[in-house]
């Protein structure tokens, strides 16, 4: 529920503005004709964070800027650009924040190592416990 609450409240700043009167870009609400390209675009859009509502990906957002971002992603994918290149373009403009997929760099090494480290610690505790118990 609080997720909804939070998401609902995210919309509020938008409500400060009147609606833009321009018709949205067609590619913001229609798919690319090539299913493979559309799938690549969709996968990328799912991982780009909406800079307006902030709590959703641009694939799930009703904000106008999110629509324009979807359109630009579809155009660039259709033009043959690689999804990761588009992600890098977005990050170069809006920072790491805009990608839901944390880029692998020294700042995020601990994050990506977390699952392995956690399991290793768990194994150590469990193994120690079992062995200690067997010896006791």
């Amino acid at each position: 529920m609080r997720q909804l609450l939070a998401l609902a409240l995210l919309v509020v700043p938008v409500a400060l503005y009147a609606d833009p009167v321009m018709a949205p870009e067609p590619l913001s609400y229609t798919q690319l004709p090539d299913p493979a390209a559309e799938a690549r675009a969709q996968a990328l859009m799912q991982t780009i964070r909406c800079v307006v509502c902030q709590g959703q990906s641009i694939a799930d957002s009703d904000a106008d800027l999110a629509g324009d971002m979807r359109a630009i992603i579809r155009q660039r994918i259709a033009a043959g650009e690689k999804p990761e290149a588009i992600r890098a373009w977005m990050i170069a403009r809006y920072g790491r924040w805009v990608s839901y997929k944390p880029p692998l760099d020294p700042l995020t090494w601990p994050l990506w190592a977390a699952p392995v480290v956690l399991v290793a610690i768990g194994l150590l505790i469990a193994r120690g416990t079992l062995r200690r118990r067997r010896a006791a």
Partner: peptide, 19 residues
């Protein structure tokens, strides 16, 4: 560091999914 970062579905799916 003052940097803004997002951790979203791609991380959670990749990190928690296999576990």
């Amino acid at each position: 560091t003052g940097d803004k970062l997002s951790v979203g579905p791609p991380y959670f799916n990749a990190a928690a999914g296999p576990l």
